[in-house]
Design a protein around this nucleic acid. Structure first.
Length: 507
RNA sequence: GGCGGGGUAGCUCAGCGGUAGAGCAGGAGAUUCAUAAGCUCUUGGCCGUCGGUUCGAUUCCGACCCCCGCUACCA
């Protein structure tokens, strides 16, 4: 079985995760589920980036030790991913011993290769912020946050010779045109590389939080340098060569538009320097805003994922984000939009389709799937619609175009609703001479619902399983897109228990 | 300043050389298996502005105007 390694960004655990974080994990999860359904052995990763000096700072402000703080925050993240049904295989914390070891080994490898050297890092440093500011960020020569005069400080740091890799990076982009998706992001990356790359500092002096530099324990590794290495750590780098051979290079890094510089430039160069292969693809997604405004906890703008789950459920949130927001671009979360898509698309179109189907099976056939007779034009049309859906939904998920995929799927869902109206099974029930015709309609209708559920499974796995259950089938798993795709997966004579509406009206 | 993205129906967007499309919202109708759901029909757009190329441009080219992102620099 082919392996497929998908990573998501590891998040800074210095505040609670919001919808933006959720968007990325949900997209990556939908893709991971899609790949599994297509028969791949998938490894999906996520985690938290705990070595940041910001984390240490936030901890101190909360009157806690960094260690205490991250131990509290970490479960908040994987807890949310669990409640969103993110099917991650591993959740990494960058304070884990295996990652500390891997980072040090990686640093050492790059150093041994001659690409890390000692240099001077200097700039305007605000003592209140504990941060360096580049000249243009200063306001009248003062710290933009505290308004106080910063001090000119310099410290010895270790630098990574990024500038050496300019040509090799350009070459890599040239040879791998799909390295960065979507294309307009690739163009941004290339633009930046062509402007010329500068070496960057990969260590910080005088800090007590972080991973010690292997060749100099007075310094810690710069947080981005160690954070990126998490992808290799998870693949076994530094402790399990067999595992590394199986999973490295990663097939795709899923990241937000704010961090492509690190993933598309720094990271490949770091890997070249460490003698590791470069991941095959980097998929860059956009951001979610709240009704046109940036989400901001302090300003009270936005909504907590847990609240949405509490009101609507997990799958409605997953569906809404995947359907509403084009993954590669920015999009907007609005309570009205969520409510509309929930009721119109999930409830009325899909949920009601299931409900009317199992209801008629119960009323007219005692909840037992009948044997279908010969097709008429109506059945042929329905199957054409199904085939079209399979093609375009498969294609859409494969290209990270979730919104398009779901949009195409709903074309089929509507076709199935139209099938009921066109064939009018409820008018046939009282006429014994029409029994075979009714059997045919009910069977094909159920089959249409089953196909829709299977197609929707990457996006709304729990709901798809519920639909399967109402049709008397066991949960969807394994390479179901390969082995259950054919029309006729339902066995005549089996019982269709039905059940409560899966997307009940709210409010 | 440079690079990139966007500007199409009230809303969210698709189309990207050949008589303007979808979903939602609004209006009307025929139905009843179903979560007052589904189905059918329908109102609604000088396709950001101004020029150009073309038999023909929302679609190509040029200039410009707004919104967003990245990046550089001046001060």
């Amino acid at each position: 079985m082919s392996t497929y390694y998908i990573t998501t960004a590891i998040d800074y655990p210095n505040a609670n995760p919001h919808l933006g974080h959720a968007l990325e994990k949900i997209g990556a999860d939908a893709f991971a589920r899609y790949k599994r359904l297509k028969g791949f052995d998938v490894f999906l990763s996520t985690g938290v980036d705990e070595n940041s000096l910001n984390v240490a700072k936030t901890a101190r402000e909360a009157g806690k030790s960094p260690r205490e703080f991250v131990d509290e925050m970490s479960p908040v993240f994987n807890g949310l991913w669990d409640s969103l049904n993110i099917s991650y295989d591993e959740f990494i914390r960058t304070t884990e011993p295996r990652h500390v070891a891997a980072s040090r080994q990686f640093f050492q490898a790059v150093y041994d290769n001659g690409d890390i050297y000692k240099g001077k890092y200097e700039g305007w440093y605000c003592l209140s912020c504990e941060n360096y500011y580049p000249d243009p960020d200063l306001v009248d020569g003062n710290c933009p946050v505290h308004g106080r005069k910063p001090e000119w400080l310099s410290e010895d740091n270790y630098f990574f010779a990024l500038s050496k890799y300019e040509d090799r990076l350009l070459e890599h982009f040239d040879e791998n045109p799909d390295f960065v998706i979507p294309e307009f992001r690739k163009n941004e990356v290339l633009g930046l590389i062509r402007q010329g790359l500068k070496d960057f500092s990969v260590s910080r002096a005088g800090q007590d939080w972080g991973i010690p530099v292997p060749i100099d324990d007075s310094q810690v590794i710069y947080v981005w340098f160690d954070a990126l290495i998490n992808y290799a750590t998870l693949a076994g780098y530094g402790y399990d060569d067999e595992r590394l051979a199986t999973w490295w290079p990663a097939d795709v890094h899923v990241i937000g538009k704010d961090i492509w510089r690190f993933h598309a430039i720094y990271w490949p160069a770091m890997l070249m320097a460490a003698g590791l292969e470069i991941p095959r693809t980097i998929v860059v997604h956009g951001f979610v805003d709240f009704a046109g405004q940036k989400m901001s906890k302090s300003a009270g703008i936005g909504v907590a994922p847990a609240d949405v789950i509490g009101t609507y459920g997990v799958d409605p949130l997953r569906y809404y984000l995947l359907r509403e927001i084009p993954f590669h671009r920015d999009g907007s979360f609005t309570p009205e939009g969520l409510d509309a898509r929930y009721h119109n698309e999930l409830g009325n179109d899909l949920g009601n389709l299931l409900n009317r189907t199992v209801s008629m099976l119960r009323r007219y056939r005692d909840g037992t799937l009948p044997n279908p007779g010969p097709d008429t034009d109506a059945e042929r049309e329905l199957k054409v619609a199904a085939n079209k859906a399979w093609e375009s939904v498969d294609d859409g998920f494969g290209q990270w175009l979730f919104s398009e995929a779901l949009s195409e799927l709903w074309v089929f869902v509507r076709a199935a609703n139209r099938y009921v109206d066109a064939t009018r099974p409820y008018m046939l029930a009282s006429d014994a001479s029409q029994a075979e015709r009714l059997d045919t309609i009910l069977y094909n209708l159920a089959e249409a619902v089953r196909n829709a559920a299977l197609l929707a499974a990457p996006a709304i796995p729990e709901s798809s399983d519920k639909i399967y259950a109402q049709l008397g089938l066991s949960a969807i798993d394994g390479a179901a897109w390969l082995d259950q795709r054919a029309w006729g997966g339902l066995v005549p004579g089996s019982s269709t228990p039905g059940g409560k509406p899966i997307f009940p009206r709210i409010g």
